[in-house]
Design a binder for these strands. Sequence first.
DNA 1: AGCACGCCGACT
DNA 2: GTCGGCGTGCTC
Length: 739
Amino acid sequence: MIYADVIIDISHEKLDRDFQYRVPEELVQAIKPGVVVTVPFGKGNTLRKGYVTGISGTAKYDASKLKEIRGVSTDSETTESRLIALAAWMKETYGSTMIQALKTVLPVKDKVRAKEKRLILFTGKKEEGQALLGKLEGSRFKARERFLRAILEAGSLDYTYASKELGAGISVLDFFEKKGLITIESQEMYRIPEGLGLVKENMELSLNQEQLLAAEQIFREWQEPDPRPALLFGVTGSGKTQVYMRLIQKVLEEGKQAIVLIPEIALTYQTVRRFYAMFGDKVSVLNSRLSQGERYDQFKRAKRGEIQVMVGPRSALFTPFSDLGLIVIDEEHEPTYKSENTPRYHARETAIERARMEHARVVMGSATPSLEAYSHACDGEYLLVKLNARYEERPLPQVSIVDLREELKKGNRSVLSLELKRDLEQVLERREQAMLFLNRRGYAGFVSCRACGHVMKCPHCDVSLSEHNGNRLICHYCGYETVKPEICPSCGSPHIGGFKAGTQQIEKVIEKEFPKARVLRMDFDTTRTKDSYEKILASFAKHEADILVGTQMIVKGHDFPNVTLVGVIAADLSLNMDDYHCGERTFQLLTQAVGRSGRGNRPGQAVIQTYQPEHYSIQAAAIQDYKKFYKEEMGYRMLLDYPPAAHMMTVFGACQDEELLKNAMYYIEVFIRRVGPKEELHMIGPAAASVGKVKDVYRQVIRLKHRDICFLTAVREKLEKYIEINSGFRKIYIQFDMN
DNA sequence: AGCACGCCGACT
DNA sequence: GTCGGCGTGCTC
């Protein structure tokens, strides 16, 4: 006997697990994971739609109580089934359960949202209602009386309000509905993402010579029977968006739809606005702050054909368009395209797979392509399209690298080098603007001992604590809080203090050094509220401030023509992360930051402060030389077998019990040695993850590297089975990550 | 979500 | 005692 695991629709959180069903003989051939089936469900055996997530030969539930699958949905050409196929691919490629994959790919209805939108209208005769109310008054039907009184007064009621506040459940509503007094309307009130102030401007698309050529080159590729993904490699300001819009125009003319992926709405507001201006209400914008229900609404609109272009972050990739023609990936190199949750898919790879399945095309763009994308472009797997001219032929800013070690020798302990300080003075004198950029990620202003080097860390999470308001130390992972010690807990030295590297500290230093300058600060703290991000940028654009201090978020978005100086406070902050991408990230951030200077008609300059001035990421960024960087970085990846030179798989394990976790990871290691390829497999670990402990849960990783991804996938599949069979892994949370 | 079960208040 | 509304919990 064959049994199938089926999840019933995806509509309710309590139903988001699988139920086992018997597979009738005649359907054995047709049933495989991902197939849409009809099954009897619940007490009344109402027929419902379900998705097969797995097949097995054993019943894990009382076999006599199992029901039988009724039928298989045969229309394999629906949008939904194509997305399910994509989920199956993600499961295979990234390692996850089918349920997890389906849940990322299919729109999940949100119960609360769906209910909120239901409206109860009083549609009967007023007199009839009044008469009934009279009868109900003083009777035992309290709920009915309450409800009727309320609806007679208001004319219509919100469903949630009626059931929650008035206690009028289904039975009450049924009573009135049968009498013909009310109708329940499930209103489809779509929420247009608010706060963006988007307007259609009927703008004409005009491309310059180079942009036209780029578009032509891509169109020519599209003539091919099997068009390759195109990588649009263009420096900042070369007008990649113009090219995207031309491509989308063409796709729309063909009667197809397009998806535009962007790293984050807030950071690419300008781009979003231009799409809206161009395509008007054909466009919908998916905001990462939208609730699942709101996202569901937008997806529904797409499915019904009410919109043709979906602009949004990573998850917009799964927009259920019926005839998808193009997927655009803007700023392709951004790390936000990699999902943090299982399945840990990469939007670029998944977009290419979806496009392959649905005969759509992929175009991605970047000024600093990821090594993965550029290497594919070099070996001809992607079409490489270049845009060289910077907008109106502006020269690149003049960049100087300041060695901070030398500053210390000169006795300068400030966060500002003498050179940067002098340049700032000149900019202020010329009444121009400057941006100071702090490329810190995560660890803000940690406290360390100057004498012994001891760093204050969270006892639960193993990350550096950050200093807030001078005397409190806070853990950014779990919120643990303690008082800043007066002396070093490790060696007793009084020389313990903050590493002056937070945006607040820089702001203070600037205010002290340049009391007349107007300073704006933009970081996580000052952009909490919805449109504070826009407000700060707009204010800076209007020259209401002279200096803008901020984290990576200031290097994207707006053009500030009056900015002629960009200062990078400490390039090392992103260079010393324990992640093989850090050289690449640093190069990208510095290139972007430097590119912010001199966007107007005055020449720009940039100062990069660092303790490692000889590092190739910094050197290459200073002269804006991508190829030089690529060669160096690729050499490094080849040497150490990091992607894209090889493939890497991370086995991540987490458990409250440290001993248990250690044992489990050890068994995994032994198992891999036994079943894995004997040749050319590099295994690192088990080791504590970069954050070894979060909220008292221990975390460990094993990394595997191999030139051929097939071997890694094979190891993963064997490991998945091994873990499922052995009860010793029950209490351990295991996750896989490819690359 | 939708259905049955069962508690509990009101009426015969 | 009995009837039926309305809250609760389960669905392979």
